Simulated assay, not measured.
Amino acid sequence: MRCPILNQTSPLNARSSFEPERALQLARDAVTVEAQALLALRDRLGEAFVQAVQAMLDSSHRVVVMGMGKSGHVGRKIAATLASTGTPAFFVHPGEASHGDLGMVMPGDTVIALSNSGESGEINAILPALRRLGVRLVAVTGKPESTLARHADIVLDSSVAQEACPLNLAPTASTTVQIALGDALAVALLDARGFREEDFAASHPGGALGRKLLMHVRDLMRTGDQVPRVGPEASFSETMREMSRTGLGATAVVEGDRVLGIFTDGDLRRRIEAGEELRTRCAKDLMHPSPKLIRADALAVDAAELMERHRITSVLVVEDDGRLVGALNSNDLMRAKVI
Rank of each mutant, 00 (worst) to 15 (best):
R2Q: 13
L6N: 10
Q8N: 13
T9P: 01
S10Q: 10
S10D: 12
S10M: 07
R15H: 11
F18M: 09
L24Q: 14
Q25F: 12
A27Y: 08
R28D: 13
V33D: 01
E34A: 10
Q36D: 06
A37Y: 10
L41P: 02
L41D: 00
G46R: 07
A48I: 02
A48M: 06
V50R: 12
V50E: 10
A52F: 05
D58N: 15
S59Q: 02
H61E: 12
R62M: 11
V63H: 07
V65Q: 02
M68T: 11
V74M: 00
A79G: 13
S84D: 07
T85H: 01
A89G: 10
F91L: 06
F91I: 01
H93T: 04
G95M: 01
E96C: 08
H99I: 07
D101P: 11
D101F: 11
G108M: 04
V111F: 06
I112H: 05
A113R: 09
S120V: 02
S120T: 13
S120M: 09
G121M: 14
A125P: 04
P128H: 06
L130H: 04
L130R: 00
L130Y: 03
R132T: 13
R132P: 00
R132C: 08
R132L: 13
L133Y: 06
T141D: 12
G142T: 04
P144W: 02
P144L: 09
E145V: 04
S146K: 03
A149T: 03
R150K: 14
I154E: 01
V155C: 07
S159T: 12
S159W: 05
S159P: 02
V160Y: 11
A161P: 08
Q162V: 13
Q162S: 14
E163M: 08
A164I: 04
A164G: 12
C165Y: 02
N168D: 12
L169N: 08
T176Q: 00
Q178P: 00
I179L: 15
G182V: 02
A188P: 02
D191H: 14
D191K: 15
R196M: 06
A201V: 03
A202S: 10
S203V: 15
H204M: 03
G206Y: 03
G207Y: 03
A208K: 12
G210H: 01
G210C: 08
G210A: 08
K212I: 07
L213F: 14
H216Q: 15
L220V: 06
T223P: 01
D225W: 15
Q226I: 09
G231M: 02
E233Y: 15
A234Q: 01
S237W: 13
M240E: 09
M243C: 07
R245S: 09
T246N: 12
G247H: 09
R258V: 13
D265W: 10
D267A: 15
L268T: 02
R269E: 03
R270Q: 14
I272W: 11
E277P: 01
T280L: 15
R281D: 03
R281W: 14
R281Y: 06
K284G: 07
P289C: 10
A296Q: 13
D297I: 05
A300P: 00
V301H: 09
D302M: 12
I312T: 12
L316F: 05
L324P: 01
A327R: 00
D332K: 06
R335N: 09
R335E: 04
A336M: 05
A336I: 06
